[in-house]
Design a protein around this nucleic acid. Structure first.
Lengths: 341, 341
DNA sequence: GGCCGAGGTGAGAGCGCTCTCCGGCCTGCG
DNA sequence: CGCAGGCCGGAGAGCGCTCTCACCTCGGCC
């Protein structure tokens, strides 16, 4: 079996069109400064030969790769249990595709992988990186910054050492939480409990902050730290009911937790929302809409977050030295009312 | 702000180690045929300079990229609603990482993207592709095969035109379904209903086949086509109960569907498993374990599937012309008993 | 009608690497 | 002690592209 003829090169196209390599290159890259008849001739040659530029050769000289790394650190296996990352990936993918960039996915599995990722990024295989780092003590962001690759973070990185020059995109976790708690308060609820997420994640911490801002001085009996999972939330909910049987509302840090809370409330014979009103966070449709009763929750547009992250990074790569704006972009949340509150 | 000094090249390392480029190259690529003292000297130079090979330059000559594309077609938005792909990705990522390959993620959004993906693959940017194509009429697999890139499919592709040379990895959907239905039959259930998945997906079709194999002649009243979602399964379950109020078991094509069925059964006052036994498929922990009652289901090792896909592809790429074995690898499933049956 | 300038096109030098030779040295054998 | 053969290491030719520069050909202007 003969090897299929190797792909045509610029040279071949040039020969066929009767022009020089340089001209073909110009046409392929936009065709500025080439006269129409020639452009046409080259286009046809490209078409006929089925020419596709060799990206490796191109990168070698341009030092551009048109590729972006997406780094998802996964301290817990949890990560993939909720569709959060999947949705962000979709947003990122759409935006990158629209700008002819490729998405290189780097999944890390514990600390051992950090060095690998850092090396890869430092190796200049990609033009930039989109990094999800949601934990306060995560060393990865630091390593990545050290690698000197333009980076945009997903979610506010929780630096222990104060401010650094970072660009990040996040939801308005604090504002969303405030809105949720205000809704409950507006419903006349006075003993509003909060099931938090893991507080070493900035999103969970910020939601707790929002809760506290509205509650004023908080009754420690009403707050239980949990882990964003239904199971964890069930334990938390039981504890809350034991501590404070007369609570009349629960703000859960995400929808998964809310669903766990709902289950325990039902099991304990509390009616929702009559006896206890419940609000979640995220608006994960399969969970929020299917729960019983359907969940009132704070929606964040996750896919849009992904898209914006990509857009920010791409823009940064464009205007090289220009305005290296730093800081965060915080996306608004919206309250979605269903039956649970 | 001065640009940071560009990364060191082979040349620089060679100079520092006092050897030729060729020798450095040999050391970097395994060091065969270079004497120990030289190897050591080169290693040190690499270390000191922080040298990382330029992948583009390397690819240019080797025609290898050490990169694999993962193509996930997404006809429906559904795709990311369940953790299925995420888990497979994890398996793939682990295996690729272990062999120093990168994962390029290609998400397609409707038919328009097909050409883009085909062009990309044909462009020789990656050494191979892992493709998830679960629909009977999907043109994508055909396009990809046309591109001449070594490919392994996730899930049995449903060709309308009979057999082609494909390599795929799939779960034993049919066998798993048989096992599920046999369990129900063994429990003395005689009117066993089946809520299918979308039958244009081979997995759903295979599960239905398995069900039929055990049931013998099937009562059409007992089978309703659905869509792998809780909502769809609710509608299907209602219809089943209306048609056949005395059914005593339900085999749902996946766990999400089973959870929907459970909800309707509860709403209609049927006890599970006393009145109606329920079995799902997938063993998605958050769903299966958290449902009420916990779900008896057919487990497939999704992450392992991903790993095997990657392994198969990598092996294929290795032994170039050698045994181009074709056909499918079908992974076994196991029945997990919980409370629902 | 000649000169200058602008706009198009081509020639050629690399980008950083791999890999094939080829030559030098060292070993072993006659 | 001389020569064949094997190993090691270096030189150099590209891989396919981009980009600078020089050249050429016009048109416009004096």
């Amino acid at each position: 079996m003969t090897e299929t003829a190797s792909r045509p090169t610029l040279e071949a196209v040039a020969a066929r069109a009767g022009v020089s390599r340089a001209t073909v290159s110009r046409v392929v890259n936009g065709g500025d400064g080439v006269r129409e008849p020639l452009v046409e001739r080259v286009r046809r040659a490209v078409e006929e030969l089925g020419y596709v530029p060799n990206q490796a050769a191109r990168s070698l000289v341009t030092k551009r790769h048109d590729a972006i790394a997406v780094v998802i650190a996964e301290p817990e296996t949890r990560v993939f249990a909720d569709p959060f990352f999947a949705l962000q990936l979709r947003g990122i993918s759409k935006e990158l595709t629209a700008h002819d960039n490729q998405l290189v996915l780097l999944l890390t599995e514990g600390r051992d992988d950090h060095a690998r990722v850092a090396r890869y990024l430092a190796g200049g295989h990609v033009d930039g990186a989109l990094v999800f780092s949601l934990h306060l003590d995560d060393p990865l962001p630091g390593l990545i910054q050290g690698a000197g690759v333009p980076t945009v973070f997903g979610g506010r990185p929780g630096w222990s050492d104060g401010t650094r020059d970072v660009v990040y995109v996040d939801s308005d976790n604090r504002g969303g939480a405030r809105e949720a708690v205000r809704l409950l308060a507006g419903l006349g609820r006075t003993r509003i409990a909060h099931i938090t997420g893991p507080l070493d994640q900035t999103s969970a911490a910020d939601r707790l902050d929002g809760y506290r801002e509205v509650m004023g001085v908080d009754d420690p009996r009403l707050v239980v730290e949990s882990d964003f999972t239904p199971g964890g939330a069930e334990r938390a909910m039981r504890e809350l009911l034991d501590r404070c049987p007369d609570l009349d509302a629960v703000f859960a840090a995400n929808d998964l937790a809310a669903s766990g809370a709902l289950r325990v409330l039902r099991e304990r014979g509390r009616r929702v929302p009559e006896d206890v009103a419940v609000v979640g966070f995220d608006d994960l449709l399969p969970v929020a809409e299917q729960s019983d009763p359907p969940l009132t929750t704070v929606r964040q547009d996750i896919e849009e977050m992904g898209r914006i992250m990509a857009r920010l990074l791409l823009r940064r790569l464009d205007r090289r030295v220009a305005e290296e704006a730093t800081g965060g972009v915080v996306l608004p949340t919206t309250l979605v009312r269903r039956a649970s509150a």
